[in-house]
Nucleic acid binder design. Structure first.
Length: 267
DNA sequence: ACTGTAACCTGCAGGC
DNA sequence: TGCCTGCAGGTTACAG
């Protein structure tokens, strides 16, 4: 499910519910990916932040609870009496008699409890690139980052190194908007400028629309996002480009389906 | 240090 | 109806 707009939507919804709440107890599905959820007893949440696709719950004891949603993760608030379903992977009982629940059908998600700021156990977070809306991230900075590798632009974006939080949907959307071909291995400085503008544009739109619900993604209240109604490129292979009418092409690029317009996204 | 590939999981849609 | 294959918002371990 979850790219930056989906995770940011959840962060904004969870923050007022969780700040100041004390975790009474935690339970977890019996897999090392989730069992650290049980390490939190009698500790309160002081802030809810985000880096890329990672949700960070700051705790009063200078630790952080980190949640990554994988492909199918969901976060919910429930009354403590609610029946857990078979896909619940972690749940925390709060001092207001509600449960904060992590549900994840495919179990690609992950729960970690770390000392504040110590991300060495999560390689992608540890080496995460700048936030898309960080003012220090300029076209020149993105250009330099993309030049440091010969991998395809799409692959580099998905690596989380040049910029944080971009996944398959928003990578295809931004490349289309910027008229940059995702299969290129190098971009010019002006192309990098356009790509950064486009990334910011599609991510901001995604947040504005509460995220993209294709299958599993749900907001905290169980609702769907709206951004799937605004997609111009992702998932539209074989259909006409809304800019020029040419049939969009979909091919597997480094094992991820990638869609682009062979006319607009051409030099 | 970097890169490509397989692996981790389950559900669902489409073809036969 | 049922079986089989391929595909899905991601990250990470491992081999070269």
């Amino acid at each position: 499910m979850p790219e930056l707009p989906e995770v940011e939507t959840l962060r904004r919804q969870l923050r007022p519910e969780l700040i100041g709440r004390t975790i009474v107890s935690g339970r977890a599905f019996s897999s090392a990916k989730f069992t650290q959820a049980t390490d939190l007893v009698g500790v309160s949440i002081t802030e809810v932040t985000r880096r890329g696709k990672y949700l960070l719950f700051e705790l009063e004891d200078d630790r952080e609870l980190i949640v990554h949603l994988g492909m199918t993760g969901q976060l919910r608030m429930e009354p403590s009496a609610a029946e857990p379903d078979q896909y619940e992977r972690a749940a925390w009982l709060l001092d207001d008699d509600r449960r904060f629940v992590f549900r994840d059908v495919r179990r690609f998600g992950r729960i970690a409890v770390v000392d504040a700021g110590d991300y060495s156990s999560l390689p992608t977070l540890h080496h995460l690139g700048p936030e898309p809306f960080d003012r220090a991230l300029t076209g020149a900075v993105l250009h330099a980052a993309l030049r440091s590798s010969d991998r395809r632009i799409k692959t580099q974006l998905l690596s989380q190194r040049p910029i944080a939080g971009v996944g398959n949907i928003y990578a295809d959307e931004a490349a289309w908007l910027a008229m940059v071909n995702p299969t290129w291995r190098r971009v010019t400085r002006p192309e990098a400028e356009r790509l950064l503008d486009a990334l910011r544009h599609v991510l901001a739109d995604g947040i504005e629309h509460g995220g993209t619900t294709l299958r599993d993604y749900r907001t905290v209240d169980g609702g769907e996002g709206e951004h799937q109604r605004h997609l111009e490129c992702y998932g539209r292979g074989g259909r006409p480009c809304s800019r020029c009418g040419t049939e969009l092409v979909a091919k597997s690029i480094d094992a991820r389906t990638t869609t682009w317009c062979p006319v607009c996204q051409r030099r």
